[in-house]
């Protein structure tokens, strides 16, 4: 990258040292995530470099182990149920809140997204005390309901952001052409806000799929989820199986992130924003 010829010596040094800092910070962000990947292919049984050899044994162990399979299945069930519930509740609320004259709009919005900022231990403890007398602890249903609380703000925020650029004349046009409200929603509103809803749903899925604190409070051995299984593994006996599970989770994150980025850019293009 050529610098303007008018740059002084000091400006050049500043320019390159700023780049140095930026590259260092980016490496700090990315390298620790990737360091775990080669370790999952290790032939040894310790999480250290250099690798004694390559093997797929840890993936084999991961896929054949009963507890890991169970925890993966539980996580998937809870995350999918959470995604559906949170997407419906969040999208409806975002559409209601989108009206300019909604009473006490900021206050309601602040309340609805507060699960994002309340320390997760407090949510866990509160829900645990609340569930204990109802017998909802140790059930996937109870965990799903708690995860929905945590996931709903993400749906609300992403759908609200998409709705902010929504032209309400489209709804009026549809209505004036005789479309009943439900048809207008299905054929006009939903296609326009779909990128926001899908992004929100992905956020909701990830929130539930990664959540460990509430799971620690609410689940027993039978309902253990993938993060809980990993947490116990890291605590008690950290082995390359954890690295194999982590690698698969990174792969999943990359896929989901790419999807939301594509959606975000598409929607930004549609709204003529950058």
């Amino acid at each position: 990258m050529a610098l303007p010829a008018t740059y002084t010596r000091g400006q050049r040094i500043w320019h390159w040292s700023l780049w140095g800092i930026v590259v260092a910070v980016l490496l700090f962000l990315v390298l620790p995530v990737l360091v775990i990947v080669p370790l999952s292919f290790s032939a040894g049984s310790f999480l250290t470099f250099p690798l004694p050899g390559l093997s797929l044994q840890w993936y084999q162990e991961l896929f054949s182990s009963g507890p890991w399979q169970l925890s993966f299945r539980n996580s998937l069930v809870v995350a999918i149920a959470t995604t559906i519930l949170a997407s419906i509740l969040g999208t409806l609320a975002a559409m209601g809140l989108n009206r300019a004259d909604f009473p006490a709009k900021s206050l309601v919005m602040a309340l609805l997204i507060s699960p994002m900022v309340v320390p997760i231990v407090i949510v866990g403890v509160g829900v645990y005390f609340f569930y204990a007398p109802l017998g909802l602890t140790g059930s996937l249903l109870g965990l799903t309901l708690a995860h929905t609380v945590l996931a709903v703000p993400f749906v609300l925020i992403t759908v609200s952001a998409t709705l902010a650029g929504f032209d309400h004349n489209l709804v009026r046009a549809a209505a004036s052409l005789g479309a009943p409200p439900l048809l207008t929603f299905r054929r006009v509103v939903l296609p326009t806000i779909a990128p926001g809803v899908v992004s929100g749903a992905i956020f909701a899925f990830v929130t539930s799929f990664d959540e460990v604190v509430v799971a620690l409070f609410l689940t027993g051995p039978g309902e253990r989820t993938l993060p809980r299984q990993m947490f116990v593994g890291i605590r008690e006996n950290i082995s390359p199986v954890i690295a194999a599970a982590a690698t698969l989770l990174i792969l999943l994150s990359v896929l989901l992130m790419a999807t939301t980025e594509i959606l975000r850019r598409r929607s930004a293009r549609l709204h003529g924003r950058e």
Binding site: V33, P227, A246, L249
Partner: peptide, 10 residues
């Protein structure tokens, strides 16, 4: 986007 536990493990 990466799981908190994955980053902590790393």
């Amino acid at each position: 986007w990466t799981s908190l536990l994955v980053r902590t493990t790393s």
